[in-house]
Design a protein around this nucleic acid. Structure first.
Lengths: 97, 97
DNA sequence: ATATTATTTAGCTATCTTGCTAATTATTTT
DNA sequence: AAAATAATTAGCAAGATAGCTAAATAATAT
């Protein structure tokens, strides 16, 4: 569990909880975590909305730190930063115990 | 850790994560949890916005299930449903481990 | 070089959220 | 009964979010 100072913690909480507030983003995140990695197209194919909409949700998740993206040829490979999320959730849960 | 069926779980996650997405609501929640209970006025006094704004955040938190309210005379006493939150956060963290 | 494929960015509209002030409800005090 | 107190609800404007289609970028294949 990484040590973080207060300000950074607040900023992360802000971005992460905002990212988690959308159901499709939560599903995307779970999906990528379980698959290990996924191309944008894999995700776009799995959801019932247009590719640009998916693309923006992916960007939001990357912005929040919950996903990482790397370009590979013309594809973009996303992977979940699961530790960041599970650490944050545990830290917040701990506040309420 | 309460047993919940899938649909209910999704509904709760939706409401709870949306409620947590606002920094003031997170602070309100922490504040009430630590104090045990608080009157609306206690909370309103602690934050740098108008009472109606606070009141709406409180209503959002109640709606999400994260707070409970009971009327006592002309005051309204709020308390945090900490278990609901910590259970949900642990369950979500577990998905990413 | 051209066409195709993978994906994002731009631009638009509709809806949701947040904050405010003013008005209202409910309860207690005088 | 009137005034005061605690809190919410109504109504509005500003800003954010989410979805879409169309256009752009970047890389590969022909």
């Amino acid at each position: 569990m990484a040590k973080l100072d207060g300000i950074k913690e607040i900023k992360i909480a802000d971005d992460v909880f905002a990212a988690l507030a959308h159901p499709m983003r939560r599903q995307i995140l779970l999906s990528i975590h379980h698959r290990g990695t996924a191309k944008a197209g894999d995700i776009a194919a799995r959801f019932d909305c247009t590719w640009p909409t998916t693309s923006r949700h992916l960007a939001t998740l990357v912005e929040s730190g919950l996903l990482s993206a790397k370009k590979q040829g013309r594809e973009r490979i996303y992977s979940a930063n699961s530790d960041l999320l599970s650490d944050l959730l545990h830290r917040w849960a701990a506040h309420f115990e």
